[in-house]
Simulated assay, not measured.
Amino acid sequence: MRALAWLRRRGPQLSSEQQARLERLPAPVALSERPPGRDRCVVIDLETSGFDLQNDQLLSIGAVAISDGGIDLADQFECTLQHCDPGLGASVLIHGLSPGTLAAGREPVEAQLEFLEWLGNSPLLAFHAGFDRQMLTRALRQTLGYRLANPFLDVAEMAPLLNPEAGILHGGLDDWVQHFGLQVLQRHHASADALVTAELALIMFSQARRQGIDSLTGLERRLAAWRRNQQGLSF
Rank of each mutant, 00 (worst) to 15 (best):
R138L: 08
G232A: 14
R106H: 08
A208H: 03
A190L: 09
G69M: 11
V109C: 05
D214A: 13
L4R: 12
L22C: 06
I168Q: 09
L46T: 02
H95F: 06
L22N: 00
P36C: 07
S16N: 05
A20Q: 15
A129E: 05
E110W: 00
G218Q: 15
W226V: 00
A129G: 06
D154C: 14
M158A: 10
R8M: 12
S32H: 14
A3S: 09
D68H: 15
A65N: 08
G232Y: 07
E117A: 06
F127Q: 05
A65M: 09
F180M: 00
T217G: 12
E107D: 13
R10P: 00
D174Q: 13
H128F: 06
S15Y: 11
G69C: 11
E114N: 11
I168E: 11
D85H: 02
R221L: 15
N163C: 02
V155T: 13
E199M: 08
R8Q: 15
M1T: 07
A159P: 00
A104D: 13
V184M: 07
S16E: 14
R21K: 05
D85Q: 03
G181I: 07
Q183C: 02
L102K: 06
R9G: 13
H188C: 02
I168R: 07
Q13H: 13
R187Q: 13
H188D: 03
G181C: 04
R40F: 12
V64K: 09
Q18M: 04
S49L: 05
I203W: 06
G232K: 11
F152Q: 05
P151M: 10
G218E: 15
L219D: 06
W176A: 03
H179Q: 14
I61M: 09
L46Y: 06
A90K: 09
G172I: 07
E165C: 00
H128Q: 03
S67Y: 04
D45L: 11
A65C: 15
M204H: 06
A3D: 13
F180A: 01
A192R: 04
A156K: 03
A208F: 04
D56M: 03
